[in-house]
Simulated scan of single mutants.
Amino acid sequence: MSAIVRRPQLEDDQKFALMKFRKTVEDILGPDDDDYFLLRWLRARKWNIEAAEKMLRSAHRNKQTWIGTNWKEPQVLKEYLPYGLIGCDNEGSPTILVPFSGLDLYGILHCTSASEFVRKTVLLLEHFSKVGFEQSKTKGVLARQFVVICDMTDFNIKQYAWRPAAELIISLVKNYELHYPETLKICYIINAPKVFSVAFNFIKKFMDDYTRSKICIFNHGSTKWQKLLFEHLDPKIFPKYYGGELTDEDGDPKCKSKICWGGKVPEEMYTKRDDKNNNANYIDTVIEKGKKLKIELNCDIAGSVLRHGISAQNSFNEWDNCCHLFLSGFAKDNRAQAGILAPLTMTSALVLRVLTIKLVKAIPKCRSRGLSQTKWTRPATLLVVEEPSMLSCSTIPTVI
């Protein structure tokens, strides 16, 4: 027997907006995209049909960009990305446990790129969405929302003072808010130390009001969250380590067979920037203080995405990721923005793209655009940039 599908009652004008919205975006809808799916986008944009359409089409492009059949997941993400899908709650919602303190972003980003991390996150969200959709066939539409438990034990804010880590977290939050509206049922942040409030007060600026309203924070040592969680989740499917009843077959209360706990990434796994094989695709150039490097790129494939990689060498001949990339140039009416995917939609056979690269260095007492940064003061810094032929627009989806 199928569960009753619980939907809010709609006013006449809302029913009309839903009907008009469906007709507007019917060219990108799939067979499973029902009224509940469309209502997510309308609610997220306060029933503004044009804004909801823009949001949904952006999410559609995002999904097409990141989901591919030939992607080989980096080993570091398989072994050190902390998360686990432990099952579903009483309403069928996928329940994800994240031992966040096991996330070594510094180590991960020295083994793989931020774009690979983003891709993995998108694939996980899509997987959780599919699990929820299948559950909704018998449990009701609430199964399409996620329950998340984040354990912040030993949270170290220093890791996120490193610019690439901070920018990655911001990028992930923005991606989620823009492309997965109203999919969070509730998020329990547990064992949060006092310093966590500093990080959360910053990151919540990038969250929608709906998302913020679904987050419950509990201080370190508090067990009040367990009572709330077990009101809608069977303790039998929750790890004994966190107050549930589930253990692995060998009695492990952390259930490591279902949950990856992450941990410190061994330096042996770090990508060696000076390896001969890696250098084969790079050229060296020196950018003096106050100067710019311009690279002309040709693109003749509509819908392509620009791919690039940069790395800087400091005065101690060590590779440093404390550099920032500013993009300028046009593909028809689309301007590329730093850190944002820029699919090219030109219709002409050839479009010129120009990259303008500057170096900035993160310091704690200089703020600009919400991130600590200032210009490099050294007279010259060695920059390694992918060869123009390698930088040419490609159909391989990557993040800028």
Rank of each mutant, 00 (worst) to 15 (best):
E249L: 03
I203K: 01
P253R: 04
I237M: 07
K214S: 06
I215E: 05
V265R: 06
Y210T: 02
G263W: 08
T271R: 09
Y270A: 12
P181L: 02
D284S: 11
G221L: 12
A166K: 14
T285L: 15
P266K: 11
F202Y: 09
V286T: 12
I217K: 13
H232F: 13
N219V: 05
L246M: 07
K254T: 14
K185A: 14
F206S: 00
G243I: 04
Y210H: 02
V195Y: 14
A280H: 15
C255R: 11
Y188A: 02
N281D: 03
H220Q: 14
I215D: 09
W225Q: 04
L246Y: 04
K227A: 13
K272P: 04
V265N: 11
K224A: 12
S171V: 03
N278V: 00
K240H: 09
P253L: 14
K224Y: 15
F230P: 00
D275T: 09
I190Q: 01
D248A: 08
T223N: 10
A166M: 08
I217N: 05
I186A: 03
T223G: 08
S213K: 09
L184A: 12
I190A: 03
E267A: 14
E249C: 11
T183N: 08
P253F: 06
S197W: 04
K264T: 06
K227Y: 06
Y188C: 01
L178V: 04
D252E: 05
D208I: 01
A199L: 04
K224W: 12
K258S: 10
D252K: 13
K214Q: 10
D274Q: 07
V265F: 04
K205D: 07
K174I: 02
F218N: 03
G244Y: 03
F230K: 05
T211V: 10
S197A: 05
K224S: 13
K204T: 07
